[in-house]
Write a protein that binds this DNA or RNA. Structure first.
Lengths: 189, 189
DNA sequence: CCTACCGATCGGTAGG
DNA sequence: CCTACCGATCGGTAGG
């Protein structure tokens, strides 16, 4: 047994926060997961809230990087949309705990940290909005689409993945991305 | 000041649970909201978990009633879908606290209550699945739609409403229902 | 519904 | 990272 790093503790925090919530997790619970005492965690971090900040920050970095990568790919608006959908799924599947904590527990951050997260989420959503707007402008998507609301619908479908998708289920992530993109573009008809 | 009823306490619990979560709510917080002591709540209920059960039960009754009403309306699958969407929006808007608690905190119910809620959610989702399947069968919706996944997408969009929709915002609930139905049926194109 | 509590657990600290 | 704690708060109860 080698010594734990701050990273180990942040990873374990993410798992606990994702499953039981920030308020449903005690420092002693966390210590149990790590094989140390709850009080020993304070050798690595200043407090419980700092762990929430660290977990949420990881997730927001991943989402931001995904959006940047989708833009960097180039292509028409529909290509960008495809990349945004696949990238979002990747983050949710590969970093489920951090993403769940980001989506569900960020509300419990202290004021300034919470505002910062809202800012990052808004920047991320703006990439979706701009992509759809470009698609409406060039005729890829239909005129009259409410760009703002459509972006929310798309992100709603994407974010809900953490509530039902299991990597070893009937669909793999590539099939999910394809099916979801088709639903977003064509709907039920 | 007249005496409080059990109902008053359940309503206040829903609001607290929706905003701060079950674990983020103490009996003393609840008492403060109601103008009584936390310990006085035990004159009306057996325990904190009982309040969560009561709040979640209200929401599940409302969702079940909405699905039953949509079915009772009759009409073709697309009419039923419209009614399901509008009914779900009504529950989320008119009973926001209970619905949020149902969607986000039911996980913290005790085993048997949690399984019961999962059963009710599954029955509710089954109404969506059957409606879409009927639409695929009669040609209203396209062949090849993954009925199970499409139902999840639709419910994802619907459930996320509690995270962004404000009744006094740019859209009213009728506009939202119309826009959402169109997005579900036609997508972006 | 309040008074007056209870034991358990919470986040966190001093010192090693 | 542990020992040995701390004050605060938790869900809950007995008795009125």
């Amino acid at each position: 047994m080698t010594r734990l790093t701050r990273d180990d503790i942040v990873v374990a925090s993410g798992k606990r926060f994702a499953t039981y919530g920030y308020h449903g997790t005690s420092m002693r619970d966390l210590g149990d997961d790590l094989g140390i005492l709850g009080s020993s965690i304070y050798a690595h971090v200043g407090g419980k809230h700092e762990l929430l900040v660290a977990v949420v920050e990881r997730a927001s970095d991943l989402f931001s990087a995904s959006a940047a990568a989708a833009i960097a790919l180039g292509g028409d608006p529909d290509d960008t949309l495809k990349a945004l959908v696949a990238g979002h799924i990747d983050v949710l599947v590969d970093h489920a705990a951090e993403a769940k904590t980001f989506l569900n527990e960020a509300w419990f951050l202290e004021e300034s940290d919470r505002l910062h997260v809202i800012q990052i989420r808004n920047d991320y959503e703006a990439v979706f909005r701009r992509t759809i707007q470009l698609g409406v402008d060039d005729g890829t998507f239909r005129r009259g689409v409410d760009v703002e609301v459509a972006s929310i619908y798309i992100l709603s479908i994407l974010n809900a993945i953490e509530r039902w998708f299991r990597p070893n289920g009937r669909l793999d992530r590539a099939e999910l991305a394809t099916d979801m993109h088709r639903f977003i573009v064509e709907g039920l008809t």
